[in-house]
């Protein structure tokens, strides 16, 4: 089935008016994931942009048409582990258990519970929308922030300029947990994203499924809201965010990038990279090249076997 037919026939599970910024990549990911998951779903949204924008409810109102809960910033995966067990024991494997968490709640604060749940193979789909920072509290740095980015905790100055440490590449770490399914996706490659959500939901019935979605943030990164998709597309084309998946059969590279664009084209026009030094740019380029080479090598192992 064509992805457009799926979207046409899947009602929106989120309140139509939530306070995510104009052009928010996270809102796009949230709506697509829950459209595909459907109404037989229980969602956990830890504190972050999506929870702050009202999808977990506000005052006495609910922000979704399906059950939604806001766990703590660091226990989303543990919370859903318990929920998944009780549903399995009551013979309700048909219920989709889904987490929609930001990178702070997945890669930083929530990493311990996420890593534990992935290793135990708890039955759930964990979607991380990676906007590279704690955006809803005012754009603080996180471990997945790209090196050299301007954030409110790594400002641009004379002594140091932007984030000093390289980005932590979480999806590959997660894939090494041996989960049932692990994949990266971006909103720019929509058919690929929809297919991976479907595959992740199917895998969540037998084990842990992890989906890492690159989600550009116009407000925090300082670019025009209409460029969200273009920024995501350039992240893939520059190998900053290679598209791949790992399932029971091994690794697959979903976007074979024969002529990658330089990282300088990706950072162009994004305000948080406005004062990148030559050294920082070279370091980002190297990280992108390493990432693509690593995933290609892993994918080639699968083909050889």
């Amino acid at each position: 089935m064509n992805y457009l037919d799926i979207l046409k026939n899947s009602p929106d599970m989120v309140s139509p008016g939530i306070s995510a910024c104009q052009g928010c990549g996270g809102e796009l990911v949230l709506r697509r994931v829950l459209q595909v998951a459907g109404e037989n779903t229980i969602v956990a949204v830890p504190p972050g942009c999506m929870a702050g924008s009202g999808v977990v409810g506000w005052s006495h109102d609910s922000g979704m048409k399906i059950p939604v809960h806001i766990p703590l910033l660091d226990n989303t995966a543990s919370f859903l582990s318990g929920l998944s067990h009780i549903y399995r024991r009551s013979g309700r494997e048909d219920v989709n258990i889904v987490a929609i968490a930001g990178d702070g709640a997945s890669a930083d604060c929530g990493f311990q519970s996420l890593s534990g749940a992935a290793e135990r193979g708890e039955h759930m789909l964990y979607v991380c929308y990676d906007n590279e920072g704690y955006m809803n509290t005012g754009y603080q740095r996180s471990s997945t922030t790209t090196e050299g980015s301007r954030t409110s905790t790594t400002p641009l100055g004379r002594r140091f300029s932007g984030k000093q440490q390289p980005q932590k590449y979480v999806p590959l770490i997660m894939s090494m947990h041996g989960a049932a399914y692990c994949a990266t996706a971006t909103p720019a490659n929509m058919p690929d994203l929809i297919r991976k959500i479907q595959k992740g939901l199917a895998a969540s019935k037998t084990g842990f499924a992890y989906l890492h979605v690159f989600s550009p943030c116009p407000t925090g990164w300082s670019f025009a809201p209409d460029r969200t998709i273009e920024v995501a597309r350039r992240a893939v084309k520059s190998n900053m965010f290679p598209l791949w998946e790992r399932d029971g059969d091994g690794w697959t590279l979903n976007y074979v990038n024969e002529r990658p664009i330089p990282v300088s084209e990706f950072v162009e026009g994004i305000g948080k990279f406005s004062k990148l030094s030559e050294r920082q740019l070279a370091s980002i380029q190297r990280a992108a090249d390493e990432r693509y080479a690593a995933v290609s090598a892993l994918a080639s192992i699968q083909n050889r076997a």
Binding site: G23, G25, E27, P187, P225, D226
Partner: peptide, 28 residues
Amino acid sequence: GYCPVNSVRWSEGGGYYISYDYCKGCGI
């Protein structure tokens, strides 16, 4: 596919159209 607010809708006779009820005007 790309509208973050799901403001682009489909109707069987008229094809795609834009609903202005919640459109934030991001321009994507």
